[in-house]
């Protein structure tokens, strides 16, 4: 009896311990051998807790071992244990996100270039994967609340702005729009009639243009026949002769121009000399200068010239007085 009692008690105790230990291990995900430990830093952990799933390409490959804020307070360090044979991409990062709509979160190992829009946290420690946490529902709800508040403000302002007077103004505006619409309709009708007239004019102009085109075509045909005629050769020969004559004339003119240029040069030189002489005369140099500068000398010369004229006249009148001609 005592032996049976001992066995029963022992059985219950062993079974209870086995249920507690094995059940706990099993509910945690089963007994796992050596695991690869990974660490990731994220600005936030969201609702991630120890024991949450770690996934890679949607497949559960491990679990979160711990979630803790780093001592500096600038990030959350997430430690994960994953299958040791897991081939992690070289640019691996960790995306912390809800696993479902019901509060369970997961850490997903991703290739960073596939999620370039997310601001991953680069933690200055070797071996720490960059991470980022998606906003949870509370943040989304907070944002929705802000939007709702702004919508409320807008609706209140609209309510304030949209008074009975505003409604009347709007009604008047609509009436005015109706009137404007009628006026526009009339104007369009008038313009349509004018467009019809214009179209008729354009049609006539087109016909005239067609006639002019026909005339031009005839003229071109005549010119073509003229160009093919033998008289053109003569005309071209005469024109060539005229060009040659013109070229000769041009050469002669070039020579005349050269001579004129030389004459002009000489004129310039003469004028320079004259200016020099005039300058010297004005400065009193030479006979002319002295005559210009000395009034008495000029009168003397004038008197002398008058006397000479008198003398010459007397010589003409009385040559024998001054000349004696004898042969021997």
């Amino acid at each position: 009896m005592e032996r049976r009692r001992e066995i029963l008690v022992g059985l219950v105790v062993v079974l209870g311990i086995a249920v507690g230990v094995v059940g706990t291990i099993w509910l945690q995900g089963g007994w796992r051998g050596d695991q690869l430990m990974l660490r990731a830093a994220s600005p936030s952990a969201g609702q991630l807790v120890a024991g949450a799933s770690v996934k890679f390409r949607g497949v559960a490959v491990g679990r979160v071992e711990s979630v803790a804020v780093v001592p500096s307070g600038e990030a959350v360090m997430i430690e994960m244990s994953v299958r040791p044979d897991l081939a992690i991409p070289p640019d691996a990062a960790v995306l912390v996100a809800p696993e479902s709509f019901f509060g369970d979160w997961q850490a997903e190992i991703i290739a960073r270039d596939e999620y370039q829009v997310h601001p991953f946290l680069e933690f200055p420690e070797e071996g720490v994967l960059p991470g980022v946490a998606l906003p949870d529902f509370s943040r989304l709800t907070a944002t929705a609340d802000q939007i709702a508040g702004r919508l409320t403000t807008i609706s209140e302002r609209f309510e304030v702005a949209f008074t009975e007077e505003t409604a009347m103004n709007l009604k008047n505006l609509i009436d005015n729009l109706g009137l404007i619409s009628d006026d526009l309709s009339k104007m369009i009708s008038q313009q349509a009639a004018r467009f019809d007239e214009l179209a008729v004019g354009v049609s006539e102009s087109a016909r005239e243009l067609a006639g002019a085109a026909r005339t031009a075509r005839t003229m071109l045909e005549n010119a073509d026949s003229l160009l093919t005629d033998a008289g053109v050769g003569t005309m071209l020969g005469d024109a060539g002769e005229s060009m040659r004559n013109l070229r000769t004339l041009t050469g002669d003119m070039r020579e005349a121009m050269a001579e004129m240029r030389a004459a002009a040069q000489q004129g310039v030189t003469t004028m320079n000399r004259l200016e020099g002489l005039m300058a010297r005369a004005e400065s009193g140099e030479g006979l002319m200068g002295r005559l210009l500068a000395d009034q008495e000398l000029a009168e003397g010369v004038t008197t002398a010239v008058a006397n000479l004229n008198t003398l010459l006249a007397d010589i003409k009148d009385n040559p024998t007085r001054y000349l004696s001609f004898s042969i021997f």
């Binding site: 008690v9 219950v12 105790v13 079974l15 209870g16 311990i17 249920v19 507690g20 059940g23």
Partner: peptide, 10 residues
């Protein structure tokens, strides 16, 4: 004994 009974019951 209560813990073992409770564990088995769970």
């Amino acid at each position: 004994m209560f813990p073992f009974v409770v564990l088995l019951a769970i």
